[in-house]
Amino acid sequence: MEGGGAAPAVRGDARQLPAQGGDGAEGEASPEEPAGTGGGGAPRGGSGRAEAGAPPKPSATSTDRQRSTEVSALDSFPLRHSNTLTNRQRGNEVSALPATLDTLSIHQLAAQGELSQLKEHLRKGENLVNKPDERGFTPLIWAAAFGEIETVRHLLEWGADPNALAKERESALSLASMGGYTDIVIMLLERNVDINIYDWNGGTPLLYAVRGNHVKCVEALLARGADLTTEADSGYTPMDLAVALGHKKVQQVIENHILKLFQNKELE
């Protein structure tokens, strides 16, 4: 969102994140598979390096107990689907050739909505459900970015942290708002995530929803208390951005919301 009415964007969003369709529409969840590609376009596994100040590695007994608990948690949540089309429901039982499916990282499986394989993958290690990749993206952030609503639902049930932030403060809520995935936005807000969370250039979920002309998503965020006065680093407020981009329906939604706020204040 630099000068001339440009909008806030997660760095490299056009190449690395889902295409922005209409509200609730799902982007194609097919990040590139090779790890280590330049520019970070594909979900990639974490580096495997221990974090500074990490606690000592648990004993074999405590590790077995933890894994047993995690497996029990996975078993308690059968896979089920809503009316929202996921990758599997669109007829893509698998999004990769069977010969290569087992080589995909947990982040790629989450982005592609491969629920069965994702569930099996989570059994293999310690706390993989919140494992960040090289950019700090967790499986939940990838699933939210690609509009995989059932994957988001199950990851949350399996203990994924909805407040996790990537290295440049990207969040599941901001990326879901960018894609216009209103159902995912509402699901995350029900987990009490920060509705006004900002990223490296000051972009908030509301600013990203406005930028993408996602009317329903803007309505949902405003109804739940998103701040209309927050500015991105370029100085744009949500209304400024809607005007600059010519998003008239979004402008109307914001104007109606402001009018309602004034009416409620007069009644106090």
Rank of each mutant, 00 (worst) to 15 (best):
P78I: 05
Q108H: 04
F77W: 14
G212W: 03
W200L: 13
G180L: 03
A14N: 11
L85M: 10
P8L: 07
R44S: 09
A73I: 09
S47K: 06
P31S: 08
L85G: 10
A14I: 09
G27K: 01
E51Q: 11
Q16A: 13
V250Q: 08
D13P: 02
R191S: 00
K260L: 15
N213Y: 04
E126I: 13
A232D: 01
P58S: 07
D23L: 01
G53N: 09
E70V: 09
G45N: 12
P55T: 01
K216M: 09
G180K: 06
R90N: 10
K248H: 11
V210I: 07
R80T: 11
D233T: 00
R65P: 11
Y208D: 04
A50Q: 12
K260G: 12
V215H: 10
R67W: 04
N83S: 14
G39A: 12
V129R: 03
A209C: 03
Y208H: 05
A99Q: 11
V243L: 11
V152C: 06
S82T: 12
K167E: 06
L101I: 07
N201Y: 10
R169D: 03
L259C: 14
E150V: 02
S95P: 14
L104M: 15
L101R: 12
P55Q: 10
A9G: 03
R67L: 13
H247Y: 14
E219N: 01
A144P: 06
I141M: 02
Q117W: 15
L97Q: 13
Q112E: 03
N201V: 05
K167C: 10
Q252V: 01
F77Q: 15
S234N: 02
L188S: 03
T204P: 07
V129F: 05
P205N: 00
P31A: 04
L259P: 08
G136C: 08
E70L: 04
L165H: 07
L222C: 00
L175E: 06
A226N: 02
P31D: 13
L104S: 09
S234A: 10
R65L: 13
S95D: 06
E190H: 09
Q89S: 02
